[in-house]
Design a protein around this nucleic acid. Sequence first.
DNA 1: ATTATAACCTAAAACGTTTCGGGTGTCAAA
DNA 2: TTTGACACCCGAAACGTTTTAGGTTATAAT
Lengths: 349, 349
Amino acid sequence: MPVILKDIAARLNLSVTTVSRALGGYPDVAAETRERVLQAAEEMGYHPDVTAQRLQKRRTDTIGLVIPTSGPRFSDPYFTELLAGVGNETARQQFELLIATRPPDTPEERETYERMVQGHRVDGLLVARTRRRDERIAFLCGNGFPFVAFGRWGEELDFPYLDVDGQAGMDQATQHLINLGHRRIAYIGAPRELMFAHFRLGGYRQAMERHGLPIEDGLIAVGDLTQKGGYEEAQRLLGLKVPPTAILAGNDLTALGVISAAQERGLEVGRDLSVVGFDDIPQVEHAHPSLTTVSQPIYDIGVTICRMLIQLLQGEELTERQVLWQPELVVRSSSGPPGPGTVSRDLAK
Amino acid sequence: MPVILKDIAARLNLSVTTVSRALGGYPDVAAETRERVLQAAEEMGYHPDVTAQRLQKRRTDTIGLVIPTSGPRFSDPYFTELLAGVGNETARQQFELLIATRPPDTPEERETYERMVQGHRVDGLLVARTRRRDERIAFLCGNGFPFVAFGRWGEELDFPYLDVDGQAGMDQATQHLINLGHRRIAYIGAPRELMFAHFRLGGYRQAMERHGLPIEDGLIAVGDLTQKGGYEEAQRLLGLKVPPTAILAGNDLTALGVISAAQERGLEVGRDLSVVGFDDIPQVEHAHPSLTTVSQPIYDIGVTICRMLIQLLQGEELTERQVLWQPELVVRSSSGPPGPGTVSRDLAK
DNA sequence: ATTATAACCTAAAACGTTTCGGGTGTCAAA
DNA sequence: TTTGACACCCGAAACGTTTTAGGTTATAAT
């Protein structure tokens, strides 16, 4: 049986109240008494029952995060890094982190959110990867439940979020390729349902239009954010009669798949084909060739949304309720001028 | 204010007890009464307060997992997949999953375990990646706290675990390379402190010895399980006067780094250099070249250790307390016979 | 000698649930 | 009419805390 307040009180001939207040650091306990309590607690190996504390305080000091996972072979390094940021910050602030992994936009996911909110399992939630018709956000807003999102939302609801300017990021990336001399630039994005897919694709379009370059439907593909998806879409694009000289990927995993497909066709990435990703997950720096990508500080994003949420929970006003960070293009070796061997080089002139 | 039992009781002129028992499905409630209670609960939007239930039942229906993360740029796909398995199974069994991310073998990690155990935050724990001197296991065994480990332990403590036979796996991998004709086979393992590093290295040694091949200290390197570590160690090995014709990596991430280093040196992996990994994370199937690796079903491992733990918590006997799964070598394109261009090919004869 | 103040302590209520040990009323059997 | 059995319901205690609202004693001020 674990030691409880009552045990300490009995041993010291004190009331439970006094023991509690001594441990709680209240000033109306004699210094000597506090000392005795502290020592007894130490000796007896007392640790407060967190459940009882929660019931009494009516908060759980726990935040929740539901990770959208698709299928058993789900493994997105992006989420590991986000999780590391969130996890470390929660711990630093003496909070707990409740995690669920559920396929996005399913009854299971919905139930999980309901469970967390309605059973008071968590004080607040983090919502990752906002979607176009995001019932999670509608649900949380509707219930007035505290949350912070990583990502914006189309509808006119006012909630706290942090987002990275995917449009500006992808614009930069596209601009970079155009500057190198590319004209025929393909794009393998993420499913349309995801908000960020929207913004990133917008950045591509914006940059292309600015330079009067045609946007061909045939050069715009939709992947599934995995390496495999990138591989397959790239195979298709590279098999075109007039293939692109550069491919922009909606995220790094997709980009890695593109590289893989290119290499399998004997192309040298960075010369015969330029590839640019988005995210800057740790893996891509030491890939071959190292990947040019739009870098967003995933770990710091995790830390920050976590910090925002906890601030919110503690009743503080957020200095910035809606934050947009600017990503940064990191040029590495996977992008270069369209090579002499490129089929469509002449078209570029 | 959320609806509580008392509210329902008041509305129906019943006692809290009866309402509770009606909702709990006890037989000593009139069918008609139960019906009224159920309907009122539905109408009023009642959801039990999970904290109060926990306090009363003295269980949390929560299991914990502390993910060992090293540094902010931590991102191991292996853990994402494990997490997906654990997460889905916990949800299926109506449990909650409490996650922490802490650097291994640090005071922070120790405190987190203490917090979880002593504050009764969780009913049981999953321990991943057992270590040679694993204070986590010593602590949990010492406290008689329920847990299941992914990985064995050297010391003579009897606890439930699931492990994959790394020795057999690496033996197979080594055998595969030897069969292909390789003789000069290097090994980039994981830090010695990790139990699995031990077994896997043992498998390499075992196979080499069986074939009377010399085990050169200079060909055995220690990585850090990341792509970067693999890259750096591979650069060193490939820079040797007589470089190896094949490199075995202690995990897939390391293997990807090796491939990257080889390609940077202009080697064609699978011909000029063979590379074999361990884990079979989703990424490696669509890498270029696709990676030959020892496959362990990470997702299923997550599901299984989770299932074992919950069984344990529910007081059931485990049919198998200590399980050892056999991994399987998956041959893809990163391994082949030592090529004609290989420096040390002649030595092999 | 009274009153105010301060220092220290505590009983009891509260948090929302489940469970224990009856209690009441009805009906059938004796 | 009593007795038992049964069906249904309920008060109170319990889970381990914190908080509220004092209570007691000693000391200082009047």
